[in-house]
Amino acid sequence: MKAFTVSKAVTALLLAGLVLLPLYSQLSGNIFILTLFTRIIILALAAASLNLIMGFGGMMSFGHAAYLGIGGYAVGMLAQEGVGSGFIQFPVALAASAIYALVIGALSLRTRGVYFIMITLAFAQMAYYVASGLARYGGDDGLTIYKRSDFSGLIDLGNRVQFYYLCLACLFGVIFVIWRIVNSRFGLVVQGLRSNEQRMQAIGFPAKRYQLVCFVISGTMCGLAGALLANNTDFVSPAVMYWTRSGDLMVMVILGGMGTLFGPVMGAVVFLLLEEFLSQITEYWALIMGPLLLLIVLFGRGGIMGALGRAGRG
């Protein structure tokens, strides 16, 4: 066993790059890259939360973007009503996501396989239509947030660098929590359920209860990403919940490597950079992106982390 593998080296390099990015941005005066990576980090956080249920728990949620919307709308609606404090907005965003996950999870987990994929998708669409119907909060057009969450001087979200580090800290925090969960007794049970639900149940674990708790934790984490995303764009609209966004998140997880700790981060960075890069070459970037996804599915088993693992061995 080598302690130092290629995948570990690349991961360390990526993380170091993320930490040092604001320094580069300051020195080179390239502000755009900071904005771009703030978005990447927030979506990496969402992808990591999806990975918890999809990669480790085997629950293929196709409606994860709903939490991005719920977290975002919690911030936006409170801001609209004059509650600007982040100490209220963020807990409300997390709580709302958790409650939604609890209800959706309790219903969806009665099914499995493709049915589970479809029902999570349908619930996310439902959330999308609810948001479109919120005439008071902009309806279809979305809701502009005129003032970012106020943390009473503790941290200024209006400051690009501070906001970047807040997002990065949230990402690291979430990955740390996922790491602890995955290696805990609870996490082992959830992973056991992924491999063989019947057996786990025969041993005496209440399968659905474990999965539901995992589902709620994941949804809450993604709600955090939603609250950050709304602050990042100063705007929230039903479009963040559209089902293609859920698809994007799934792609990030698979691209990076399902069921690996840093895979989703890698996937988010590569996916969004590729999107950015291709859209600069041609307006019709999806024309390349689509078949690329197909090829990745056909030939790229285990995503980037898998490929790095093979490179390490080979």
């Binding site: 196709f62 698809g247 999806a286 992106m289 689509g290 690329l292 599915v297």
Partner: peptide, 10 residues
């Protein structure tokens, strides 16, 4: 899901 999602984009 993933591969056909790519096809939709295409």
């Amino acid at each position: 899901v993933l591969a056909t999602f790519g096809l939709i984009l295409f």
